Simulated assay, not measured.
Amino acid sequence: MATNQEEVKLLGSVGSAFVCRVQIALELKGIEYKFVPENLANKSELLLKYNPVYKKIPVFVHNEKPISESLVILEYIDETWTQNPILPFEPYQRALARFWSKFIDEKIVAASVKAVHIIDDDKEREKNVAETSDSLGFLENELKDKFFGGEEIGFVDIAAVFIAFWIPLIQDVTGLQLLTAEKFPKLYKWSQEFLNHPIVKQCLPPRDPVFAYFKAHYDSLIASK
């Protein structure tokens, strides 16, 4: 547990998959922290002070030392609080965990978000849907156990919270079929196990408001087409 001498803050907003990653790691480790809500439409002086380079959330602040970028934050948390490790001990497995987590951000998150926002170019949208599907296929083949971390959730599982919670939201809002039980049975089963993990459940944002936000955003994109 964080002691009184350790001040731990998390600047973020409810509904962000990247903030949710950090919250899951903190809860798994049993670290007490203060959540500082941020409005990205009107960024606070605190956010600009702690993350002047990217001006984005999440920002993790430990004893006034700020760290940004969710995967970097996860590694810092794991190295600082060694209980309930989320990265594997063996160097090769650690390297693989880093590889697949980066792959999730660069291939799956990036392509699926582009597919949502490209509404006036069917060919480009189909390209991004295909890239998302191909990338999910690689992850499907990589999943060997109940979780990517084995019997317990680990680094890659936490990085993949976007796939488990946010991709189904994207599907419901847009009608795009990205993650289905028929096409990716192992990944789909993993997503259900992951979402029902007690710590993950308590960190996820309430679905209805997030769905409403995404739908309003998507409807505005359609209206401006």
Rank of each mutant, 00 (worst) to 15 (best):
S133D: 12
E75T: 08
L169R: 12
S68T: 13
S112W: 09
S220L: 08
Y50Q: 12
R125L: 01
H117N: 15
P85D: 07
T82C: 11
F99Q: 03
F60R: 09
L46N: 02
I118Q: 03
F60K: 07
F155P: 09
W166S: 10
I104L: 12
Q23W: 04
R207Y: 15
P185A: 03
E27H: 11
V61C: 11
V61W: 09
W81M: 06
I118C: 02
L221R: 10
E182D: 15
E131R: 14
E131S: 13
L71M: 11
P91T: 02
V19R: 00
V200H: 03
Y188I: 08
I77F: 09
V129P: 01
I167F: 03
E6C: 10
I118M: 00
I86K: 02
P205E: 01
D219S: 01
N63C: 11
A41S: 14
E193R: 15
F194A: 07
D121L: 00
W166Q: 12
D219Q: 08
Q171G: 10
S133Y: 01
T80L: 13
V72L: 13
F138A: 13
D157R: 00
V14Q: 07
A115C: 06
K186D: 04
A130Q: 15
V129Q: 02
P198Q: 04
F211Q: 10
D208C: 02
V156H: 06
I67N: 06
